[in-house]
Design a protein around this nucleic acid. Structure first.
Lengths: 232, 232
DNA sequence: ATCTGCTGGATTGTTCAACAATCCAGCGAT
DNA sequence: ATCGCTGGATTGTTGAACAATCCAGCAGAT
């Protein structure tokens, strides 16, 4: 397998929850989209990079039309930016986008936590907190980051809304896209590790108002930090 | 223009706000998606209906591949549902979806209005209220419906978030998809006409907390009504 | 009569090759 | 240095082809 011929691989497996009796064989276009999502999340494709149709088609061993179909999907998810007649590029988060993203997060995360949730969902939040602790103990930076994402994902999942979940998933995907810039400074994480703990405790205690306030405060501070890192 | 040959038409013109110095000639795939969005909103394509690639390609005078690209986009927007190897269908809102949609609306609308907004944005909300009044006076049912959508769109626009705006636009598009079932009973509207007025007044007076509460109450009631109409 | 299993036609999924339209880097003339 | 041109590369779109899949209808078995 030469460097110019990296086949479609297996990177899925985050869906976990569904036990639907369905034998799914994702279409090629679907798998191309999945592979690109993976490469984007993993940082192999840096923001602003240009994706040439022919190259990707050849690398993945699929047709150009199929690649285009995948592009249409990812562009709708804001992971790729399509510039007519110029090509598609990995999306970049500008200064304004950071505020934008956090505006969405404030809306859906705070709303979700304020509505509470079933014991199982709350337990999932607790599980994410523990996952973070474990990662911290193991000095696992990577794991620490994804634990945090699981935490916030679990908060949105409290609302039991498919649409809210996918919106959140997309937002998190967007953030992963450019998080690699900030992913290294680990002392970052030490803060919210105990903060997540507090939020989760408040949630478990049924103090939804307070849980929401804490979460909101966290999001505001996080936005400031991100803005600072990103410059300006 | 025979029935089997309806060319791509002009139904755009909602973007208004942007005065970017850009000469945009949307790609064919884009216009196909736009045309389908239009037909969906207008109710020419009823929920559950099957869209056969070849037929649409021929009707619109474009290639099948181009149609598929448009499909990928609309499926990502939840307006179409893709069932592998079976075809794409106009999305249908099930009982659970109604709750889901309103959960999203509660999250983003209430959050937006609670944060207030610039005087111009508030004025836009007022404009939507007036638009509704005018439509009511003219007995224009159609106009009444879209005035209401403008109202709620304007509320989300308070937050000045592109992402929130597009999310709201998609949600509204989803609702239009099946609103035709309920669009006739006009006494429906008489309620929220004065309610919008109240919400808007509270917003203008800076009583954001109260505005949010009113809006929330409206959304809850509206969800119930919709659920009742949709049966069970 | 109902169920089973097959079959053929229709539709989707995907590829390929082609061509027009567009963009862009480089180069030459002013 | 600026302007304008040109040629190559890339995108946008098409049309045709074929494998895979689905589905309605039908023949045969119980």
């Amino acid at each position: 397998m030469a460097s110019a011929d990296q086949e479609l691989g297996e990177h899925a497996g985050f869906d976990g929850a569904r036990a639907r009796m369905r034998l799914r064989v994702p279409s090629v276009a679907e798998r191309v989209a999945e592979e690109l999502r993976y490469q984007l999340a993993e940082g192999f494709l840096v923001p602003g990079a240009k994706l040439t149709e022919a190259t990707i088609a050849e690398d993945l061993g699929v047709s150009r039309n199929t690649v285009r179909e995948a592009f249409a999907e990812l562009a709708a998810e804001r992971l790729l930016l399509r510039q007519p007649n110029k090509g598609v590029f990995v999306a970049t988060l500008e200064a304004g986008d950071i505020h934008d993203v956090y505006t969405v997060r404030r809306a859906i995360e705070v709303s979700s936590i304020r509505a509470g949730g079933s014991p199982e969902r709350v337990a999932a939040v607790r599980a994410a907190v523990d996952e973070g602790k474990r990662a911290a103990a193991a000095n696992d930076n990577e794991g620490l980051g994804s634990a945090n994402q699981h935490f916030h994902g679990a908060i949105v999942a409290l609302a039991e809304s498919n649409r809210l979940n996918t919106i959140m998933a997309q937002i998190l995907a967007e953030m992963r896209l450019y998080f690699h810039k900030a992913t290294l400074n680990a002392h970052f994480y030490s803060d919210w590790l105990k903060e997540n703990e507090q939020i989760c405790s408040a949630l478990e205690a049924g103090e939804l108002e307070r849980a929401g306030d804490l979460l909101l405060a966290y999001l505001n501070r996080s936005e400031q930090q991100q803005a600072a890192i990103h410059g300006e």
